[in-house]
Design a protein around this nucleic acid. Structure first.
Lengths: 100, 100
DNA sequence: GTGTCATATTGATATTCATCAATACGTTAC
DNA sequence: GTAACGTATTGATGAATATCAATATGACAC
């Protein structure tokens, strides 16, 4: 569970958002992520996955030598709900959208 | 209107989130913001206000010599809705929470 | 016009962070 | 055990950015 600042920092990078998009609704191992992220090295991908992991924004599963990642959509929704309660309390739909 | 990356970058700073909290549901002029942000200089506050302004996250109103700012809650909600559609499409409430 | 006040901008500095090459670690096969 | 493979970590470098002091800009009063 991250607060609004950690969540924003985790999302504040184009490479990480591209990785998040890749991991939305499917599991990919690190090697496949590296393949899809053209011109980004494996250590860099691993670095960004670590940041997403520490922010709780990805699920991780080990299978033999490979490590699979998937986007934690629930955590994304929870963090967005928190931002809306903090910074959009007067927008009607915001207050009832996501429970935590 | 900002995309998910610009929004996240604008929110990815503790000082800016503190300023946003100050401006939530009320108008403050720059001087009052500086007073409330202890140990942060006026140029630094102005710098952060410029970033929030360029991200569309604040309303601005001039009154004589003073410039008043207020949080744009609607834009916050719109950006959160965009993030949820992009990165939490399978969370039930996310898809119907905010229209754009 | 001048002076004063409030805010914005400039220039410099320090910190944070993204990136890569090289290396270490963990797992499986043998 | 060793070798090979996949991933994580380390160390170094460059870029982005937060911060401040000093200055500039804009608005009002006179």
């Amino acid at each position: 569970m991250t607060d609004s600042l950690d969540f924003a920092k985790a999302m504040a990078d184009e490479t990480r958002q591209r990785i998040m998009a890749l991991l939305c609704c499917r599991w990919l191992c690190v090697g496949d992520i590296v393949t899809e992220m053209q011109a980004i090295s494996q250590p860099t991908v691993s670095h960004h996955l670590a940041i997403l992991r520490e922010a709780g924004l990805v699920h991780v599963r080990r299978d033999g030598k490979q490590v699979f990642y998937s986007l934690n959509q629930d955590e994304v929704a929870v963090c967005c709900g928190r931002i809306m309660r903090n910074f959009a309390p007067e927008v009607p739909v915001a207050g009832i959208a996501v429970s935590e």
